[in-house]
Design a protein around this nucleic acid. Structure first.
Lengths: 243, 243
DNA sequence: TCAGGCGCATTTAACTGTGACATATCACCA
DNA sequence: TGGTGATATGTCACAGTTAAATGCGCCTGA
């Protein structure tokens, strides 16, 4: 039982997450195989490989991405504390994307082979897992709508709002600030924009006073206006399970 | 128990789907509340509404889409026989997208409130459900990569290949043909392209002899070349659960 | 039986948002 | 001190958009 015991998990204290009973915590802990600490730039899961583990992010941030044959990269989603990843490989067998650490990260690892046990013995956790998958599916659908129908300014506004909401909900940052240690290139690859145009659009949002992203810190002073620009509704933070 | 009994379901006979035991079929049937027959153009599920049902497509085709505030429409995915939909609403509460019938459709309806029973009493079905969610998540990730990183020609080639594979796997069409009763506008809205450019690109693929889509029928004579153009690998059909 | 209308595919022409390329600046580090 | 990675900015070309018009098949109603 290396690393933190689940019942002492600092993340779990945040009321973003649905509380677990001691019995539930004990089970999750038995499901856990260890903690993984990685340096920035480390590839945690590799497209095409067959990972034996599933992960919950305890600390740090990363990207989930696909690389195309022509070398282009599509960032599918960012990984923040509390996020769960690896279910696809856990269920389908082979990773369809890679996961890379952007900052130093700590991940809680679970045995993929225990997944079926979880479904048999703990239907509540199985339900949680499906809940997580459904929420991710919803988010990916919104991403598709952004790439397909929004112009560059709206796309960036959309991404910044959603990122801000997620990081705030995870309890990161203070006041109107939130840490965002990615490169502009990462955001560009997430939105299907060129680096140059991403840079210019960020400048425009800055000069409009809507979004300031400097030195790894994102500041949204007028998130409502930014959301209007992106043509989206703000999402109220919703309690969710932490695996 | 209106409509077809699950054990007589004609879809289930196709060996695309994992076989169920009689006991399993009986349970699925008990979970079923009825069949839904709709005309083309009918909205089956509405964005923002709170559907009490989940559906498996028995017959016909449709689209799953989001409408943006500016009136633009993003088709997130097409619905084909054997597809399951409504899990998002079933789990998250509110529909985040709409579902519309393109052709006459027959759907098998399940009670959303029974979902939790399914998790408790039939972990195998719960696992299947999560499997379906994971596959959908994978597909949406590939869609994001297409919208973000491929040009118009590659996007259309990608879409046609994937659609062809899915329809073939479902046992539709004969030889190199497959029925595809959508409008060019639907494909355009799925790929984030204008109708005009979609039309031009389809014409180009036609004159290259790679794809012929006329009168609701899609013919791919050189699917391998089309896949190369799209920079994707062909997917071997994989057995999957039918809910 | 024919006229009118509607949905969809097709085509042409003009415009534009975004990409590609080039270059500069700054911080950091070996 | 030079090298590397990131942000920043200007210029120009083009893939794809927008607008507008035509044709064709099919339905409906007189």
């Amino acid at each position: 039982m290396p690393g933190t015991a689940c019942k002492n998990c600092p993340l779990r204290k945040r009321n973003l997450f649905t509380p677990f009973t001691d019995e539930e915590l004990a089970f999750m802990h038995s499901f856990k195989t260890g903690e993984l600490n990685v340096d920035p730039g480390t590839t945690i899961l590799m497209e095409g490989s067959n990972s034996p583990q599933l992960y919950t992010v305890l600390e740090g941030m990363g990207t989930r991405y696909k690389t195309l044959e022509n070398g282009k990269r599509q960032v599918i989603n960012f990984l923040f504390p509390g996020d769960f990843t690896g279910l696809q490989a856990g269920i389908m067998g082979e990773m369809q994307h890679s996961v890379e650490a952007t900052t130093p990260m700590t991940l809680c690892a679970f045995r993929r082979n225990d997944l079926w046990q979880l479904f048999r013995q703990h239907p509540e956790r199985a339900y949680d897992l499906t809940w997580i998958a459904a929420v991710e599916e919803h988010f990916l659908g919104e991403t598709i709508a952004s790439l397909g129908q929004r112009d560059a300014t709206q796309r960036i506004a959309w991404a910044l709002v959603r990122i801000y909401e997620r990081l705030k909900a995870a309890g990161l940052g203070k006041d109107g600030d939130v840490p965002l240690p990615f490169r502009q290139q990462d955001l560009a690859d997430a939105l299907g924009l060129s680096l140059v145009h991403t840079n210019k659009t960020l400048k425009a949002l800055r000069s409009m006073g809507l979004a300031h992203w400097n030195d790894g810190s994102l500041q949204l002073k007028k998130i409502k206006s930014l959301a209007d620009l992106a043509m989206i509704d703000l999402e109220r933070p919703q309690q969710r399970p932490l695996m």
